[in-house]
Design a protein around this nucleic acid. Structure first.
Lengths: 151, 151
DNA sequence: CTGGATTAGTTTCAAATGTAACTATCATGC
DNA sequence: GCATGATAGTTACATTTGAAACTAATCCAG
């Protein structure tokens, strides 16, 4: 009796597994800064990008955190209103609006970073340092391959 | 001069990396069945779950594909309207509404599965089979750990 | 039995998101 | 130097999504 040539078990299907894992991790992390600091995922990512590489324009932020410019624009609007980031006028090109963390934003950033790193550390806890490197490396390759396959 | 004790580089931050990788893969896969078959991600996952384990109630589907019942309910409504799935009345408990693929749904499922598996295969292409197993195993551990950490 | 608590699933309303159109500024070719 | 097109960012509208309220059916304690 001919068995089906191909079967798809969601549980073992890589794209599905990646999706579920990423979602679970993302939600856990979200709990760290959503409640206490009132940030959305995108807002936090914008702050993280600026924390490391300010000043950046909205476009540069978008490229860095892989978000379209509308999403970035909205996150930036929210952060500006709360005074967590500031615009630095660019005299040579007034279309550009470079951004950086405000003093208040730096303080918040400084509080969240240790929480985020601690969460990452706990997540990695079951893995040896070789295994961590291995996972990172393999994830990199998958990412490169996925980009390659993107039509 | 005291350097900051902790720094967070988004590019090397595991939750962020997982999120970006999963999103890229998910979008690529989405292209395979959204255009040609007009399915949303959730709809496809519902069909995939039913393809392997029907009959399942909406709740059971939700547990399997890690989706809340509202999302499942909406996906199911869309699939029912298109005649891709059917309800099997449950005489012993009329609250429950077990679902299964219709003939038409099975046909579509049978067309999508090979496409999905082929994509997965191409994604894995740069990895040896040991590396695949390794990645899967490490991802499993991370997932278990993430569940553990979930408050 | 029967009234309150549970469970399955749907609907509703508000918030988040994506696409496309829009404004403002700058770069370029003639 | 000025029309055309490109770029940065915002706004508007339609769709999707999420949280909570709701309906219907079942379970269970007394």
């Amino acid at each position: 009796m001919p068995k089906p040539l191909q079967a798809l078990e969601l549980e073992n299907f890589l794209p599905y597994r990646l999706s579920v894992l990423a979602q679970l991790v993302s939600e856990s992390l979200h709990d760290l800064y959503a409640g206490p600091f009132g940030l959305t995922v995108t807002q936090w990512r914008v702050m993280a990008a600026l924390g490391g590489f300010a000043p950046l324009t909205a476009s540069e932020v978008g490229a860095r955190i892989v978000m379209d410019k509308v999403a970035v624009s909205r996150a930036v609007a929210g952060l500006l209103k709360r005074g967590l980031i500031e615009r630095v006028p660019d005299a040579t090109d007034r279309r550009r609006a470079p951004l950086e963390l405000s003093a208040q934003g730096r303080t918040m950033h400084g509080r969240i970073v240790p929480l985020a790193l601690a969460y990452e550390e706990r997540l990695y806890e079951g893995l040896t340092s070789e295994q961590r490197k291995m996972f990172d490396d393999l994830a990199d390759r998958l990412f490169a391959q996925a980009k390659q396959l993107r039509v």
